[in-house]
Nucleic acid binder design. Sequence first.
RNA 1: GCACGAGUGGCAGAGCAGCUAUGCAAUGGACUGCAGAUCCAUGGACCCGGGUGCAAAUCCCGGCUCGUGCUCCA
Length: 477
Amino acid sequence: MAVRVFDTRSRKKRELVTIEEGKVSLYACGITPYSPSHIGHARQAISFDIIVRWLRKSGFEVSYITNFTDVDDKIIAAANEEGVDFLEVANRNIADYFESMDSLNVIRADAYPRVTETIPEIIEMIETLIDKGHAYLADDGVYFEIDTSPEKYGQLTGQTLEMVRSGAGGRVDKTGSGKRDHRDFALWKMAKPDEPFWESPWGEGRPGWHIECSAMSLKHLGERFDIHGGGSDLIFPHHEAEIFQSECCLGHDPVVQYWIHNGMINIDGEKMSKSLGNFWTISDALQRVDPLVLRYTLINAPYRQPVDFNQIMIEDSENHHKRLIDCYGEGLSKHGTGDWSGIPELEGAAKRLVEGMNDDFNTRVALVEVQAVAKWIRGLLSSRGDEGGISGAVGWISEFAGDVLGLLPADEEVLARVKSHENVKVEVSSKVESLLGEREDARSAKDWSRADEIRDELSEMGVVVEDGPDGATWRIE
RNA sequence: GCACGAGUGGCAGAGCAGCUAUGCAAUGGACUGCAGAUCCAUGGACCCGGGUGCAAAUCCCGGCUCGUGCUCCA
């Protein structure tokens, strides 16, 4: 069945037809590592991680590239403030990024190109743009001249040149640059004192913000590629600038077949931003929640919707994720993993999940099915029947909640968790059993206060007592 | 101002033309000395006004409200 993706340029869902059958080339704009990564970066990475996972599961061979913009104003500013080299700042934050993403179960991209390693290609591209008359040299840099291909304006945003001309109004003068028109954008910035620089035909300087992605995608994926992605905040101006650069440089269009953009994160209904003081770095978030719970929260809405990161969402996710892992762990340790084909409940769930994922990667629909199967397992587990069903369902969860959504820790870890729980159980077992016996006596004597006292005592040991029809059971909390 | 998106039950959040979304919470029941867990059941929603359809949260038009972008941003 075909995968349909929402394309920002055409503003509708389109069936994914790739340039080369069976292969997908995907470039997603990565981060500018000037500070530790925040949960918005996590959402972006997880969104594309799941897209890549799903495309691969659907049988595509995927080349997935995501970059680091490792030289820019903010990195330089941070480095100057600390009195260190800009690369030290970038490298530190890139390491932080990888550490966070690994914990969030984000599969590594096939390559992580960096601006500082792509300078020759960038220069070459700018030269071509100058040669073709799309760019000009000014005192302070090289600029792309929008008026050389006005028809490309607004392809992603629906705006026209005039709209932006009037909209941006008086901000032009503030730039104080050598731009001929305020909508032109920098391809190469001449170095100011105390700035890192590279040699170029136009003097010492560094690349402008947009050109690197055009150069890196060209270098790694070629003159045409299937999907270009990134956060929706990059649509304008960054991605529109890329369209200008790449298409004018290469002389054909479209270079990118599908544009995919993930939604932003809100905190309690407001945009997350440093100035509002509602900013969460990934490490902030991980102090509060398990990384996989964070992942669950971030895929709780389809990737294009904004996610509101609020208390309720987090608690909800914690709850669901814990249930998922608990029933998976119990099923796995008791019955192992098996084949789910031929089991109607599981085939039905798989079918709905596949349809949901094929329809623009709807993780929310997928989660509903995962929840339903988890519930189904719990039912079987408590009724002690149908072992084939349980192992099949464990296999189902492993395939979809694990491989596709990336929500499960490794099986060894799940089993180790179950085991350590059991070890604790064994350790305290005799004490608990004797207390429970005592409590049973108290209960038959209808000495409720003594019975509750014992329950409280056990509770302090972390033991939860649950009275059932066949007497009391207990478990470690 | 312009552009894009969103407005769904107490809450979160799907669906985007016809069939129970789902989860949490609530209520009733089973089980309980109480509690908890579990199971069963129940109620409750589609911003407003028009329009098109046999049929509209779902499509169209017009409002209103909110968010985001138009400057660096995942």
